[in-house]
Design a protein around this nucleic acid. Sequence first.
DNA 1: CTAAACATGTACCATCTGGTACATGCCTGC
DNA 2: GCAGGCATGTACCAGATGGTACATGTTTAG
Lengths: 199, 199
Amino acid sequence: MAPGDARKQLLDDAIDHVAHHGLTDLSLRGLAAELGTSHRMLSHHFGSKEGLWVAIIREVEQRNRAAISEVTAAPDATLADAMRSWWRHISDPSLWPNERLFFEVYVQALLGRPPTSELLDGIVDSWLDPAAEAAEAMGVPPGEARAFARLGVAVTRGLLLDLLATKDRAGVDAAMEQWIAGFEGRFSGPTAARVDPAG
Amino acid sequence: MAPGDARKQLLDDAIDHVAHHGLTDLSLRGLAAELGTSHRMLSHHFGSKEGLWVAIIREVEQRNRAAISEVTAAPDATLADAMRSWWRHISDPSLWPNERLFFEVYVQALLGRPPTSELLDGIVDSWLDPAAEAAEAMGVPPGEARAFARLGVAVTRGLLLDLLATKDRAGVDAAMEQWIAGFEGRFSGPTAARVDPAG
DNA sequence: CTAAACATGTACCATCTGGTACATGCCTGC
DNA sequence: GCAGGCATGTACCAGATGGTACATGTTTAG
């Protein structure tokens, strides 16, 4: 086994575990037992428990950034259709554990608990910029694009929280469609996906 | 001091403390030290640590239900104005610690941690019913009212999460206004705020 | 073959946690 | 005045936790 490979494997398994069992009451011993190793190994590979947290949080954030690039590269023609396919993707039950973990880290960051708090900086803005850009490219007036994007992020997260708690797929889907239908008629559609050369 | 009074005082102080410092890493000793008593007292009044959690969660939920009745009794004429004053109220910085606590308990409940998980049952529905009723009474078509109310709850919670993280008052307010303006023209206004005598 | 770096395991420690037995004060009803 | 219930404090216990010293295998480079 290549050096560092065991660490990578441990980290992947650890993330899978905390996605299902939570991060806050994680113990090195409990995690090690579930992963078929000893807590000594976790200390060895990650330095300390906080080091493990850092590794987990960084990896989760990295996956989130990968997800952002997905929404930007959506091939749909209209903003409404882009939102629909994005929602279909993000609301899939296979992603629920990861989203629960995201909200768990979010709340821990709100409480100022290190090392999660550093996540707060980009937890909205990193989504806002590409979302506003996409909205503007698809017909939302420049003056409204940023507020509209911010609203879109809030709707997505709010409905995800709803879905995770109630598991009421039909009800939450209807609410999302209610939002999409609300703006579907308001914007003129994609402005040929133009990239303004004048900035 | 009347019997049970000390317990009430301790509970109020404890809620104030967890609203600022979080619930997950709460220790009886740490809390007692901050409250000027001993962890022995907390065990005495609440039976156990889990008993303290139950007391805190029930009290927080009760305050939330009081908040629900406020939104129902809004005196505003239009749905948009009702939403605006509700948002002005709920987004006040003095309530941020309580809202952080709400989201913290929400996430713990998502992770199935007792005794928070019992909260999941009504965490959306208890808001949905009165909100849908209010929406319908103010001009939203009956077929859309429930989805619209659900969307309203999601928008509120999503933007609160945003506000708690970014503290960008102007940006979040603009997003909320973006949403309100989006439906302001669509519904015909209050149907005389009628109270159906036939039930 | 060997030495060094890495991985893994065992055993232990100091600390913190929730819980509880026991004692003491304090107020109320008789 | 006194007896009983409640509030409060001290001291302790058993368990879990994170961390670490030490030892042993295992793989790789020379």
